[in-house]
């Protein structure tokens, strides 16, 4: 068990790190999305995360639930497309599960992560293998749960599983979203949503563990 649980400052650092990673990888996300989507994932998510950072800086939420819910609401209001509701729902459900507390232990963070992933399924109706962000997030949540109660080890396992899930989207044929109109022509391309989701878990492993 990590000595330090996840507190509000750590969550804020996670969100900040994800925003920076999305900005750094914006062109890569856009390039992946222009191959099988509509070439706006990088720009939309970067715009949304900039707005999230600004909102958290001005509001300074004092609980885990408030911080995660503010993150979700801001993404819903600023991103648009499909990724706005999907990432927004992820953080909203995470925040609801976390509750109005100042710290989360490994089990509580895992439960919140699981709730967030459940929100993605409820919103997007995706199944494993549809070539979506769920293909990175579902194995990440599973790996987190399987890793036991050491927060750092669980987050590293989750991040590695998300990376593998992201890579595994390459040979898949898309069955959701705009990419699905391409049919077989979507095979051979890495899913942009799974790519940004792997960034989210990598940022968690760096900042929360």
């Amino acid at each position: 068990m990590s000595a330090v649980p996840v507190d509000v400052a750590a969550l804020r650092a996670w969100i900040g790190a994800f925003a920076a990673d999305v900005a750094e990888h914006q062109e890569e996300l856009t390039r992946l999305d222009s191959a099988i989507g509509d070439a706006d994932h990088g720009a939309n998510l970067a715009r949304g995360m900039r707005a999230v950072v600004a909102a958290l800086d001005s509001e300074k939420p004092s609980t885990a639930g408030a911080l995660l819910k503010r993150t979700g609401m801001t993404l819903v209001s600023t991103v648009g497309g499909a990724s706005g509701p999907l990432y927004g729902t992820f953080f909203l459900r995470m925040g609801t599960a976390a509750g109005e507390v100042e710290t989360l232990d490994a089990a509580a963070f895992g439960a919140a992560l699981r709730a967030g992933v459940g929100g993605i399924v409820a919103r997007g109706k995706a199944e494993l293998g549809d070539k979506t962000m769920y293909d990175a997030l579902a194995p990440a949540a599973d790996a987190y749960d399987a890793a036991g109660d050491d927060l750092g080890a669980a987050l590293r396992a989750a991040s590695e599983a998300a990376d593998r899930g992201r890579d595994a989207t390459v040979p898949l044929q898309a069955r959701k979203g705009r990419a699905s109109y391409l049919g077989e022509r979507s095979v051979g391309h890495q899913d942009p949503g799974a790519t940004s989701s792997a960034l989210l878990l990598a940022a968690a492993a760096r900042t929360l563990g």
Binding site: V76, G80, G81, A82, G84, P85, L86, G88, T89, R123, G124, K176, G177, R178
Partner: peptide, 9 residues
């Protein structure tokens, strides 16, 4: 996909 999700929310 995007329209359906944003209207649903």
């Amino acid at each position: 996909t995007g329209d359906v999700m944003n209207f649903e929310m």
